[in-house]
Design a protein around this nucleic acid. Sequence first.
DNA 1: AGCACGCCGACT
DNA 2: GTCGGCGTGCTC
Length: 811
Amino acid sequence: MFVEVIIPLALPKNYTWSVPPHLLDAVQPGVRVEVVLGRNKKYAGIVKRVLPSKPESFQPKDILNVLDPEPLLYTSQLQLWEWVADYYMCSEGEVMQAAVPANLKLSSESVLIWNEAAGYAPSDLSDAEYLVTEALELKKELRLSEVQQLLDAAVVYPVIKKLIEKNICYVWEELKQKYKVKTETYISLAAAYRNEDQLADLLNNWSRAPKQMELLLAYLHLVKTAGEVTKAELLKKSGASDAQLKGLLEKNILVAEKRAIDRISPLPRNIAIDFTLSPAQEKALAAIRETLEHKQVTLLHGVTASGKTQIYIKLIEEQIMQGKQVLYLLPEIALTAQTIRRLQKHFGGYIAIYHSKFNPNERVEIWNKVKSGDIKVVLGARSALFLPFRELGMIITDEEHDASYKQQEPAPRYHARDTAIYYASLFGAKVLLGSATPSVESYFNCMQDKYGLVTLAERFGDAGLPAIELIDIKKYPAKPKPVFTPPLIDAIQASLDAKKQVIIFQNRRGYAPYQVCDTCGWIPQCRDCDVTLTYHKTRNQLVCHYCGTIYPVIQTCLACGNHHFTQKNFGTEQVEELLGETFPEARTARMDYDSVKGKHDHDALIKLFEQQRIDLLVGTQMVVKGLDFEHVNLVCIVDADGILNFTDFRVNERAFQLMEQVSGRAGRKDDEGKVLIQVSNLQHPVLQFVKDHRYAELFEFELHNRKAFDYPPYTRLIRLVFKHREKHIAEEAAHIMAQGLKTHFGKYLSGPAQPVVDRIRNQYLWEILLKLPKDSRFIHQCKKEIHQQTVIIQSNKRYRAVVIQPDADPV
DNA sequence: AGCACGCCGACT
DNA sequence: GTCGGCGTGCTC
């Protein structure tokens, strides 16, 4: 018998191994098997299917072992992997990398074993070699990682190579399972004393060891109230010592037992729905149920604070009642303690949280519990899609428009929203997309009647939509360009006086986005990217916001040698600084990629703001995600031009989403929410829509524009960057690509899309490649990238790059 | 992903 | 003349 195995590597296809007779009964699709690939590398792969006949073109090797008594996942997951690999142009092994928690992907770890038999002469060894030899003689074996701690990382491999040559040690390859069950010791009464008489007998005839008796009594008391007693709990509650317990254990009065416990804190498994829906919500819920009767996917377009989550909760409850599982997807950033608490309150022990930053042991536990059907609801980021659901009833994709649903690096470059739709179809499950600002592609699918559409236009409770006011920046002195206009300052002051909070939105990090040489107008740019360098005052550095490269502050103009630069425009750092100067008595904080490095910083800052220990919060788009601030009554968009003034109309959708999301932060509880937008082009179409929260019309506008440009409605962003030392080559490449895209996107508008687009893209890429100079490294890289959804091509530092970034396509 | 093989430039 | 860098291809 033979098996096709998925190995967690980017192999061009799956390989086949043969099964020795004694393992025949153990193999089945979904189990892990230990196999040798290449010379002596061992991997734990997953059996995709069992093949009856021997392959012809090669001689398969035997599998070494079967690692699982039962499959790790169901066939629906294997189907999903196959689809993702095909659709997003990667190998199934790469999908496996993303899907399976590290602790289930056994790691091959090389261990150096001390060769007892061989002697050595210290004079023959270099310092580094001697160091390792000594350690080996002492410990008999060393892991490679330990050697690395011992030596300078750069010389590890050469030194080991030498030692092996000198026969001082050898390498042992072994597969190790890292996942360990966490156990806890439980204490219980020995069987002999389980009945009342015997226990009374024991207590009445107690002699000596009064301390032990104390502990025993404490145990008896505890067991009455708690039911089960752990060792740690008992010792803590009774204040007893280990010795006392040991005595009782030795006398066989109490017994200790180690039990595996769950890492996930056990919550009662009940559902507590303690709210009622508003009439508008009830109506939306009924509409969702109805559309889902005959459509697989429905989009819930609900303005911010319209209470979408409560509708989700009702739907989740229904699914649990039917014994089905639910996957609730959120963008990673929105997975805050706040959201989690909210869901946990209603679903207690039925729910699990899952995202890639979880510790590996917890991930394995959730994996197993989802597989067994123990967990009914998973609240997770995109990686939660790969959990082995058993009976999936529904997938909810909240904040459906969020770009972070698309994985960019590494492969598989999948879009969680679209993958979710496919995954759900395998179960016959329903999908609910939710957003206050749906993506154009989802909206388009509604218009095409492919998805159902339910709109929830009013905010929950008495809250109204915030009033949006435009401030004409041209009315105020042009230089220096004002960061805060007088009306804005007044409004902030009014909020401060009313003890309210303000969010100031500026979608640019750093202090100054670029700087200009006063004499010749030269602007410092990144060496590798076509991007100006942003000055960061706190770090006193120049940073490329595209690739992240850091440069020292430039004192001398590289073009003319002069020393005077002018800082142009402003970023969050400068806004924060100016706020401090303008409102010295207010408490100000900044929230952007630089100020919140870890996840904890983010949570901590949110907490501070929630508790009203911050009055003014400056931030980039980070402030628009996953926050529910009750005391905010003013949101300021300081520099709307910075979001709107692109020649590329395709940015409109993004600009609208940003503004709409920002304005959604204002005035959630009371009616006084206000949004101030400082802008120079008051006539900008996006602003007209934003002003009245008219999403549908913006969409019509977008669609119309895109049609006029032969541009497909549901490919949101295609960016082409061509660079070449020789300008005409770059231009030619750009031209060919643009032509190709234009000719074929007409067809794309009316037909099933993605495969076509991929073929076209590849075809034209090849054409470009043929015209470019024969640079083997460049061509090779291109070939490699062509197999990926996102094409990023570059060749070293001096590069020509083709960046094509198509968004994922609805299924 | 690793690893071997092979092809060119910098050295004993 | 060899050492060693990297580019290329292969692993059932």
